[in-house]
Design a binder for these strands. Structure first.
Lengths: 294, 294
DNA sequence: CTGCACTATGAATCGCTAA
DNA sequence: GTTAGCGATTCATAGTGCA
């Protein structure tokens, strides 16, 4: 079985190939499928009212391919039409549960640099959903791998709070916690929470060529989450040499994150231009990693 | 008709009293109903699988009571049971749409100062949902009332007088602005987005007695949002002397926010202890306001 | 190589016009 | 009637170029 490959093709067909995508073979699936758009675009125009029925055959295969203790991270956000939010994402979550997935969590990805604009009835949309699904409740989760320095997350209040105030507040909720307050305060790194804010200064700086390859710009491919997003989930749900699948890999961000973290990757992309770009970006990322030890 | 009152009673019954709650009489409903809990608590233990059917009769009355151009803000967050997120919130949104509500937006309330903690399968829950529903798409929204200071990036950027945006902005407004450029730059405000982060420094400081009355701390009251949360929505969706209803008013935070903003309020609370506390807190808040002009 | 000035643009939304 | 396309609106970043 081959890993570290980007396949060109339609996930809805390719994922059914059991010789390529064996059952229970993948540790983590991270993907950001094309969102539902009322109007068709060059890339991935799935109509909102058909979204769930379009996605379910794919997620059925993903369930098969994922290891029993693996995780599935789905980055998605509904849009607005005629002043109302679309409902297909809510319906998708319910449908995925019907299909057997456990809905473990919904992370909020807070995008500070959201698209500008002003409308009469709405402000700018600055967050997206990152759903965490699993096959069973005993999934693997390496929480220590994503600890953050205290102060990075908005511990402002704790910093300004006196020690006494802090103890009092904590002990008001749970006495066991109260006892451990000193530990928390003295610890250099703490566990994060379920609101994700990716600020470059807080993470390893990745060379520009990998982040925004010139050849991939100005293509109509809109969907790039920052490298930090898959990086975070890969650290949290896999160990080195683990296998990460992205069935809508686009220009390869998930694969790059996996490669840089010494994990193995599998990607599928329907637009051959993007698939090629993804392969080249991964190659460049690996080269940079080997050279400079990124 | 009496305003500025906290009623003790069950919303499911009281709201049907058309002499108290007249049709199309309220500008804004802001509430944080008891969340679904697997085990019943002293206060508001509605079981997750019965949540929607419990809420719909209430929301039906709210629809009646709300003015056609009014808004309904629902603060809620599903819990987790057996490692899985409950689905009743998703189902509630779909059911409210069935009932005639328009789902305009889902704001993310990012609670930065949630306390550290660690569970096996999840991190701390640091955000809640604030759904915005309306009766029709032509609802009232006073966006200018909630503008926020522009990001720090502007300090550097606007130092240059030749910048395109700068010229465009100055010439686009009025000449008086142009004369006092430096002052205007320092005070420039922009529209917010749909992730709400309440940091005290950005808001009027409210005396502690109103914010956290001693008598109400450590009570098992489920839903206490900070004063800033209803304040923000009241500014956004009502004008002075507008009418704000909270059918689960608890210890009165929504009513206090309304009173401090010179709006009228109506509240319902089933636990008479809390209702009394709410009345006292509102009284104290009004007194403080009259004295010090908070 | 750092620092600053300046440019470009991003998973957007709504209303209007034309077909 | 319905749908598709276009313009106007708006702000926080990354990236580039120059001193």
């Amino acid at each position: 079985m081959n890993y570290n490959r980007i396949y060109t093709g339609d996930s809805n067909k390719l994922l059914r190939d059991v010789s390529i995508f064996r059952s229970a073979s993948v540790d983590l699936i991270v993907t950001s499928p094309p969102y539902g758009k009322k109007r068709k675009h060059a890339y991935g125009g799935v109509k909102p009212d058909r979204y769930v029925e379009w996605f379910l055959p794919i997620s059925k295969e993903l369930f098969r391919i994922l290891k029993p203790k693996g995780s599935f991270i789905l980055n998605i956000k509904e849009g607005a039409t005629d002043c109302e939010r679309e409902t297909y994402v809510l319906e998708l979550v319910l449908a995925l549960k019907e299909q057997g997935w456990l809905w473990i969590e919904e992370f909020c990805w807070y995008k500070k640099n959201s698209f500008p604009g002003k409308w009469r009835h709405r402000f700018r949309d600055s967050w997206e959903r990152c759903y965490h699904f699993a096959r069973q409740s005993e999934f693997k989760m390496y929480q220590d791998a994503v600890k953050v320095p205290i102060g990075d997350w908005s511990t402002d209040r704790f910093r300004s709070m006196s020690h006494k105030d802090y103890i009092r507040n904590v002990s008001g909720t749970n006495s066991k916690m109260g006892r451990n307050v000193a530990n928390w305060l003295n610890r250099r790194r703490v566990y994060p929470h379920n609101v994700l804010v990716f600020e470059q200064e807080h993470y390893e700086r990745i060379p520009n060529i990998v982040r925004f390859p010139t050849a991939c710009r100005n293509h109509n491919h809109s969907a790039v989450f920052p490298l930090e997003l898959p990086t975070w989930f890969i650290k949290l749900f896999t160990k080195p040499s683990g296998i990460v699948l992205d069935p809508f890999v686009g220009v390869g961000t998930t694969a790059i994150a996996a490669a840089l973290l010494n994990r193995r990757y599998l990607g599928i992309e329907i637009v051959s231009e993007y698939a090629q770009a993804a392969r080249r970006r991964v190659r460049e990322a690996r080269a940079l990693k080997d050279c400079h030890g990124v």
